[in-house]
Design a protein around this nucleic acid. Structure first.
Lengths: 141, 141
DNA sequence: TGTAAGGTCTGTAGCAACTACAGGCTCAAG
DNA sequence: CTTGAGCCTGTAGTTGCTACAGACCTTACA
């Protein structure tokens, strides 16, 4: 790679460091269509711009908030090629919010069961255990 | 399958219906070593007993509570062949509980961010959107 | 007895969302 | 000029299933 080829561009490693993203994940997002195919040097090395970095940071933030990739595609306007309206984004966000709340409720139900069951444990070095009994369904005949 | 062969046994389909488990999942648990290999008829059909049904119900309950399969293996004493002591079960349960609580905390953080962000949405048919702005990092320079 | 419908058998591929190699180039520094 | 680091590709593994395809077996009914 010479100076002309790489002027003002990131390599994949640079981009990974700049964004904190795993280097392989970048390639994965490209294949998944979230990140546009970057130009290449003569030797085939990817050259990323600041725009790519912005896009990747957007994706990473959305993923941190738990948006599935399909949703991110929508937020990026990759479905129909037009960027989504505020209404569309809001709808997607609220559906996602509902999913998250459902997951929280699920986990809280699990938590409640496990916390009560575990609290009955003697913690002794014996094979009898109230947790196993609960799982074995002795409570439901 | 004749009367002699199937006396007092479930087929895989029977077991699926009796436990509410997907029929393919039963085969999966067998391959994963959670469910013991059942005896077979001359034609190769699996024959399950009430003990298999109890074991499967145990597994399904543990999965509902979010225990990963590795943990279930431990709870079933499939690691070293001896059934675990109450202390071991308690430890595993509490580690799992901690995982669940961490997941809840994660999701609650997501929920908070999404709820506030979405509440700023006009819901209008315009391309400007505070959710997208937040994801684009305009808030973090 | 024949046959059609349903069950079961195996292996394999797919889902999400990555992550981690192997084997081969290429690039930069000493 | 060599050495080590970085990049390239494709592919396989992760977790916990689910869903086929194509072959075989069983059961019910005529």
């Amino acid at each position: 790679m010479n100076d002309h080829e790489r002027e003002s561009g990131f390599t994949r490693g640079d981009l990974a460091i700049a964004t904190g993203c795993n280097i392989e994940t970048i390639r994965y997002y490209e294949k998944a269509g979230l990140l546009p195919d970057p130009p290449r040097t003569g030797a085939g090395y990817r050259i990323y711009s600041a725009a790519h970095a912005r896009r990747l940071r957007f994706i990473l933030r959305a993923r941190e908030l738990g948006f599935p990739m399909e949703d991110i595609r929508g937020l990026l306007g990759l479905g129909d090629g037009t960027s989504p309206t505020c209404a569309e984004v809001k709808e997607r966000t609220e559906r996602h919010l509902a999913d998250i709340r459902a997951k929280i409720a699920d986990l809280q139900r699990m938590e409640a069961v496990l916390a009560t069951t575990a609290s009955h444990c003697s913690g002794a070095e014996v094979p009898e255990c109230p947790v196993l009994d609960a799982l074995s369904g002795s409570s439901e005949p």
